[in-house]
Simulated assay, not measured.
Amino acid sequence: MNSSPPSTPPVFRAATEADVPALVALVESAYRGESSRAGWTSEADLLEGQRTDTEGVTEVVRKAGGQVLMLESEGALLACCQLERHDGYAYFGMFAVRPTLQGAGIGRLVLNEAERIARDEWHMGELRMTVITAREELIAWYVRRGYRRTGELSPFPYGDERFGLPTRDDLEFELLVKKLG
Score class of each variant (00 low, 15 high):
2 N>P: 14
3 S>Q: 07
4 S>G: 14
4 S>D: 08
7 S>M: 10
9 P>Q: 15
9 P>T: 09
11 V>C: 05
13 R>Q: 03
14 A>V: 03
15 A>L: 08
16 T>D: 03
16 T>F: 00
16 T>A: 08
17 E>F: 09
17 E>R: 13
17 E>H: 14
19 D>E: 04
21 P>D: 06
21 P>W: 09
21 P>I: 08
25 A>G: 13
30 A>G: 05
30 A>D: 02
30 A>R: 13
30 A>V: 02
35 S>A: 08
35 S>H: 13
36 S>E: 02
37 R>W: 04
39 G>W: 09
40 W>M: 14
40 W>D: 01
41 T>L: 08
41 T>R: 12
42 S>G: 05
42 S>R: 12
42 S>K: 14
44 A>D: 09
44 A>Q: 08
48 E>C: 12
57 V>W: 05
58 T>P: 03
59 E>F: 04
60 V>C: 05
61 V>T: 02
62 R>E: 00
63 K>V: 00
63 K>Y: 01
67 Q>E: 12
67 Q>A: 14
68 V>L: 10
69 L>Y: 04
70 M>W: 06
72 E>H: 09
73 S>D: 12
73 S>G: 08
74 E>L: 05
75 G>V: 07
76 A>R: 11
76 A>N: 11
79 A>S: 11
79 A>M: 00
80 C>Y: 02
81 C>S: 11
82 Q>K: 12
83 L>T: 03
84 E>L: 15
85 R>I: 06
87 D>I: 04
88 G>V: 09
88 G>Q: 04
90 A>Q: 06
90 A>C: 05
91 Y>F: 11
93 G>W: 00
94 M>K: 15
95 F>K: 09
98 R>E: 06
98 R>H: 12
100 T>K: 13
101 L>M: 03
104 A>E: 05
106 I>T: 13
106 I>V: 15
107 G>S: 06
108 R>T: 07
108 R>Q: 02
111 L>G: 10
113 E>L: 01
113 E>C: 00
116 R>M: 06
117 I>L: 11
119 R>N: 13
119 R>Q: 15
121 E>F: 00
121 E>A: 05
123 H>C: 06
126 E>P: 03
126 E>Y: 04
126 E>G: 04
127 L>P: 01
129 M>Y: 01
129 M>L: 14
129 M>E: 13
129 M>P: 02
131 V>T: 05
131 V>L: 15
134 A>C: 10
135 R>D: 07
136 E>V: 08
137 E>P: 12
139 I>M: 11
139 I>H: 03
140 A>W: 13
140 A>K: 14
142 Y>G: 15
143 V>T: 10
144 R>K: 10
145 R>K: 13
145 R>M: 06
146 G>N: 10
147 Y>M: 07
147 Y>A: 07
152 E>F: 09
154 S>H: 10
154 S>I: 00
154 S>K: 15
154 S>Q: 09
155 P>M: 00
157 P>Y: 01
159 G>L: 04
159 G>K: 01
161 E>A: 12
162 R>Q: 09
163 F>I: 00
163 F>Q: 11
164 G>S: 01
167 T>S: 10
167 T>G: 07
168 R>T: 06
169 D>Y: 12
171 L>W: 05
171 L>I: 00
172 E>I: 02
172 E>H: 10
172 E>S: 10
173 F>I: 08
175 L>I: 03
175 L>K: 14
175 L>A: 11
176 L>K: 12
177 V>M: 08
178 K>L: 00
178 K>Y: 02
179 K>I: 01
181 G>Q: 12
